[in-house]
Amino acid sequence: MADKLLITSSPHIRAAKTVRGIMLDVVIALVPASVAAVVFFGIKALSVLAASTISAVLAEYLYEKAVRRPVTVGDFSAAVTGLLLGLTLPPAVPLYVPVVGSVFAIVVAKQVFGGLGTNFVNPALAGRAFVLAAWPLHMTSAWLNPLTMDAATGATPLHAFKGGQAAGSLVDLLIGNRLGSLGETSAIAIILGGAYLLMRGVIDYRIPVAYLGTLGFGVFIFGKPGALFQGDPLRGILLGGALLGAFFMATDYVTSPVTPRGRTYMGIGAGLITLLIRYWGDYPEGVTYAILLMNLATPLIDKFVVPKYYGYAHDALARRKAKEGGR
């Protein structure tokens, strides 16, 4: 009988949002930053982004075919990873950099650990860390001057900023008229995308707010060499990849804590590590490693940061019982 009634456990209706829908939202949120990158860095930017995205999707497809798992490129998560990776690269890198980075991100950082949902670090950042270790020269010098698109010499504004010098006007920083990786130049475009994700309820405001707040406050305290409490928090946040990291990388579901309080801790921790690397490390930027390290701390945060269950707040006996229960 074809028209038998279906029996399932309640609830019988589901929210409209699916994994695919969420990933599509992230892609949409990345459109402003990608467009800004193409506007400032031209065809070079477009080719880098295309190479990283296409090779990420292809890598996922081929890997899943090779190990005979169901193909999941339809959930757009590989496309998101590839696009994010592309946005963290300097504009003038040779095209094999995004390709190798994407393949590493998808195969080694994601699929080997079981695919979407079981990877332990953010695949895009793992890919970036890999190409950074593989071709450090490309990754720290392949800059282009915005708009004119000729090869730029000299340090990025972040280098100058670390030395305590002024680093361009705020307007230039906001629009993106400066040296930098594809996705980190235009602050407005990233904030636009982040706002879209917040509005759609895709990401939790806690991680970006805690991260950028910690970072800004730390820059204010330590930002000026030789003097405390005279740093420039705004430039500290706008320079480098902090914005992109805060809105798109640190908020990656799989590698961030599930509890609201845990997410706050994740943001604060990433902010502190970024500060450590920026001011006490050799390296001008620490967003990648800060977030990767907090990814590794996520299971720990999840284990120890649990919400106060309903009904345990007022009753001392119940509180004790809950404690005896194990946590």
Partner: peptide, 22 residues
């Protein structure tokens, strides 16, 4: 019925739980 996919740890269930469970 839609296919059941792996958990992506989005934490939406944690936010939704009225008893604040996980």
């Amino acid at each position: 019925t839609e296919p059941v996919l792996p958990c992506i740890r989005c934490g939406k269930c944690v936010e939704a739980c009225p008893i604040r469970l996980l």
